[in-house]
Each structure stands twice: as C-alpha cells, then as structure tokens.
Design a protein around this nucleic acid. Sequence first.
DNA 1: CATACATGAATTTTT
DNA 2: TTCATGTATG
Length: 714
Amino acid sequence: MNARSQSSQAPSLNPAQLEAVHHLAGPCLVLAGAGSGKTRVIVHKIARLLQHGLAPKQIAAITFTNKAAAEMRERAKALVGPRAAKDLVVSTFHSLGVRMLRADGERVGLKPNFSILDSDDVLGVMRDCGGNTDNALARRWQWAISLWKNQGLDADAAEAAAANDDERVAARVMRLYQERLLAYQAVDFDDLLGLPLALMRRDDEARAKWQALFGHVLVDEYQDTNAVQYELLKMLVGSQGATPGRTPFTAVGDDDQSIYGWRGATIDNLKRLPQEFPSLKVIPLEQNYRSTGHILHAANAVIAKNPKLFEKKLWSELGEGEPVKVIECDGEEHEAERVVARIQALRGGQLGVHSVDGAVQPVRFADIAVLYRANHQAKVFEQKLRAAQIPYKVSGGTSYFDRAEIKDLCAWLRLIVNNDDDPAFLRAVTTPKRGIGHQTLASLGEFATPRKESLFEALFAPTLGAALKGKAIDALHEFGRFVNDFEYRARHSTGSEDAKVLLLGWLKDIGYEQHLFDSEDSEKLATARWSNVLDFVDWIAKRCGGEITQEGGTFESERQSVFDVAQTISIIISIAERGEDTDVVTLSTLHAAKGLEWPHVVLVGVNEGLLPFKGSEEEMTAARLEEERRLMYVGITRAQRTLAVSWLRRRKRGREMVAGLPSRFVAEMKLDEVAVKEDPRERLKRIRAELAARVQASETAQAAQAASRTAAAG
DNA sequence: CATACATGAATTTTT
DNA sequence: TTCATGTATG
C-alpha cells in the first residue's frame, strides 16, 4: 500500500456513519473529522440510494479535483459494481459546469465549442486588456478578478466594492476581460461555475431541466466550496425554485480542515447551511480510524485553540502509540540530515509492520512523508535524500498539463477546436518558431481588433495586405492553411490507429522534436520532454477508441475523432498516475497532503513565521492565524503511527540568518501533558500488543469485506 | 528575431 | 540563493 492506503476499519459502519448513510430524505451535513471514513460514508450512501430505487445517473457526487472524482468512482465500483458505477455522475464542480455549458451555453452567449483557458492563457489576455502591462501587475489583476468571480461578483459589483485605486483599475480590466473572453468564445475556470449559475438564474427551462436530473446530490470537501459553488449547489437542489429544497443532498466536510480560504473558499457556506435549510440533519463523525492516541491528543489540543462552529472531538481505539517527537535543529541542512537519520532509523528499527506472529517487516519508504509549509523547503531535503540514496518523490510538483511541451500541443488542439481562440493561436503560431514574430503578430492584432475579428479570421482578410508585408502574409497564410488542413484531418481520423498516424505526422510537419532538441540545452532534458510528447499522443489515441485491450479481453469501444478528444482536453485529468506503486518517500506541502495519510510523518520547519506563515507585509489577522492552525491540524492528522515535528534554531530570511523560534503550535500540542514515562521494554511490549490487535482487526475487516462482496455478487 | 546577461523579488493550488 | 523578467546585443 502506498500513501493512499485506507486505514483499517471495522467491517460494519459505526452508528454515526450509519445515521449519515440512512438519512436519505432531506438535507444532511456530515462533519467528517480527519480519518473518520468519510469516503466510505459517501460510497455507502450511494449504494443505499441505488437500493432505494434511484438510477445511477440520478446520483451526483461532486468533488474538487479530478483525482478525487476518479478515486470516488473506483471506490463506488468496488461496492456497487461496474455497471452502476459507470453511470453515476461523479465529477468536479467544474466538469459539471462544462457539461451544462456545452449543452445549454448558448443561452449565456456561448457556442457549444467554446474553449477553456488555463491560467497562463488568462494571464496573456489580462496583459492584453491592460495594454501590454508587465506580468506582475497582470498577475495581481488575475488574482483579484478570480477572487471576485469566486464571490459571485461581476465587473460592476467589483467596481462598486473596490476599496482603492488599484482595485478600481482591476475592476475596469475585469470588464474588458469579460468582453474579450466572450469575443474569443472562451471561458476561464471560474466561468465554469459562474456561467452555469447565471444560465439557471436566467432561463427557467434550463433550470427545470437540470434540477430534474438529480435525485440526490453529494458534495465532498464541502468546507472548500466558494460562494458561487454554494449557489450552484442550492440551484441544483432546487432550493430557489417554487418547491424549495426539493432534491435532498448530503454535504460532507470538516470545518477544521478548511485551508483554502486564500483562494475563495468560505466557511460561511458551513454556517449558512443550518440557517438556510432548517431541516438540515447534522451528523459529526468523531471516531478516527487512522491515528494512534498521542497523535490525536496533539491534533485535538491544537485545534481546540480555534473558535468552533460545531462541537467535534476525535477519538480512536487504536491505542496510545508512540509519543510525538519534537526535533530541534541548527538550521535547514541540519534538519534535513536529522530527518534522513530518522528515516533510516525507522527502516532499521522496531516500528515496522508487525504481523500477529511477531515477525517484523521493515518500514517501507512509501510509509514515510516529509511535510512542509512552502514548496521551496523541499530543496534541502531532496539534496540530503539523494546523498543518502533514499528514493523520493515531490508531490504537488508541476502537473502533467503544466509542462511546457504539453501546453504547446494543447494550444494547437484548442486552436483547431475553436479558431477564434486567440491565446491558443498565439502560442501555436510561435511554436515552433516559423518566422512569425511579435512584430508581425502585433500588426495582425492591430488589424483584427477594430474589425472585431479573431486573429485567425483576420488571417484570410483580403485587405490584410495593407497592414503587413508580403513575406509575413505568406508565412501567416501558410500557417492558416496548415491549421485548416490539420483540423479537417482531425475531424476525420477516428480510432486510435488513425489518431496516432495523424498526430505523429503532424508533429513531424511542425518539426516539434527538432524544436525540443534545439531549444533545450541538455540533450537528456530534451529526450525526456519528447517522451512526454509521445506519451501524450498515446493518451489521445487511446481516448479515440477502437480496439482496446483490458482485463476481460479485447473489445471495441466507441470511436471518437481526434477533434472530439481535443474538445474535452483542457479539462481532462492528468495522467500523472504513473509510477504510483514505487516505494519512495513523499515530500509534500501541507496543502497537497490533505486527504492523504502515511504511517510515519515528519512535519518540518515548524517555526514561528513559517508555520503560522508571516509574510513581510500583511499583518496576522485572527482569521489568518486560524487557517494556519488548521493547516497544522491537517499536518498532524496525516500521521497514522508516528509523528515528529522539527523546528530551526536559525533560519534564513532573505540572505541573512535570523534566530528561529519554535512555532506556537508546538506548545499548543501540549505534548508534556500526555507524554508517558515508561520503561522502554514495557513500551515495546505494549506497542506489539497494540499492533497485533490492529493487524487482527484489519484482517477481520478484510475477510468480512471479501465475504460481503461475494454475497453481493451472488 | 533569438540569445545572453543583469537586476529584482521570494506562501499555500485546483480547475 | 534561486528563479523570472527586462534589456542589450548579435
């Protein structure tokens, strides 16, 4: 098992879980503490709803990430079987939004083939709207505008709410930006939430249609919803129609794990739920199946310092376990060395997985995680781990679709899907370089803008000759013809074989491999990039269907054209899932670690200023401190069996060294109150007994699960 | 139009 | 110290 392994849990649901699963009639809020088996509850509730006669497609389970959606579907499949699981609507808010807009977007001015801009594209458009501004400013606008959109504000509302000149400028940019997106027939990620909401508000027919679709809506990680997502949920369950609260729903979340306030998530959505749905059933899940006692004491003690929305205290039956260890370090290097030493000690020590007969399997690398506040902290650990020959992976690193080479290719695909997508046009036309530079493109832009045409449309205007030199026009025309030709072929190549031929031929035509080797100074890096490209081609080809070999034999799946696949590409899940079974230590930010668990966790850099993070300028408000505390809580509750917390006596600030203090959260863990003074030999005996009991429990659970599966199948 | 050097700023991240 | 952006040069 790797980090994703589920904690062992008794085969039957506990009373609170049962209550949550059985409450089908009205709105339900499940306050799922860390490690309390919330996915299990969701999946069992889905099964229960199916038993009660809902069709799979009437059940919507909404998650935040594609990865979470995929996992949810897998878990559902294991419980209800592949047939039912296939038709369940398990999707992110954003993909549901895409689905609604592709179907009914015309009512908010979108053709069905609109493009979805990623944040780089958005940045480009922002810079354009502000008249060639610098990147940093454009990024601030992007940030502010995204937050406004997440709060459900339009440009007018944003301008009215603007507190200073900077914000007023941003609000003006926002108006321009929205106009331009519409002209491009493009939307950003925030629009995937806001436009479906606008659609349903504006159009009774569409609203009725989508409200009739679902018989129950489940929302995972509810504490991470923003204002727009909440409105969207309310709209979907029909609370604003003539028959309020018609569709029952289940929100599952944990206010103590809300760590995304900085990107628009609002805990108000939790506060408002009981007020706006008076019949709301609130069910706390407090039994933790993940961590041992010392770890939970620390977690409870820390979070107790935060004001509470709902009463909730975790407990577990897994025994006291190991005390939490605090490691004091000289500096970053020393910390990394001590962590390496700890990893080696864990692997060599008595803390491996004990089976009932007392044999010890060593701790695997994949059982260990090093968690930190900010990405840059990973660096020293990478160095020291490499030096010690310990394999590791850095999670939360750049995702597959963030890679430059993949973005390049996606730009081309987007351009053939939607010729009016100017950001895609700009990226494709300059990748690889084909003698068309900013000069030419600037002139083309100046020509196109007053005519209210997209760049691609303007390419073929007969009067373009007045604005550009012959040579430039020739190059542009050639590009245009090439794109049209590629589009034609993409529409007509279906099935994986044709797709592969088309895509490889296209890469050759644009000279992409050569481009990679020319632009990358290390040949090794270029090779790696090229192999990413080939993976990408395979991935698209596979999605085009045709003959597919899977467990259960070879069969014919529905054929799609490359064009069809390209249409959905910017929203589709990354294939970063490869290499999941390798035995490596995980390095991760605290944010990226949410939802995961490891037997052994080290929280590093737990320093005042770093873990309650303190920027140079903004002051530490109570709300900010509380979110930092929840982050600490999330970190602590990732650990199943051992937890160590390290802090630095000296740390770098800018280029100088300053004295470091342990984070206030270290004291808040109240380790001294629960630490046990125990004879080491006694301790070992106790630990073994606890572990044996645990192993037995998990084996019983597995046996029962297998039995119930057999029963379900028969 | 692309590459080489200097100068300046530094959370967290998904869609 | 590193990374990214802006300017100067070939």
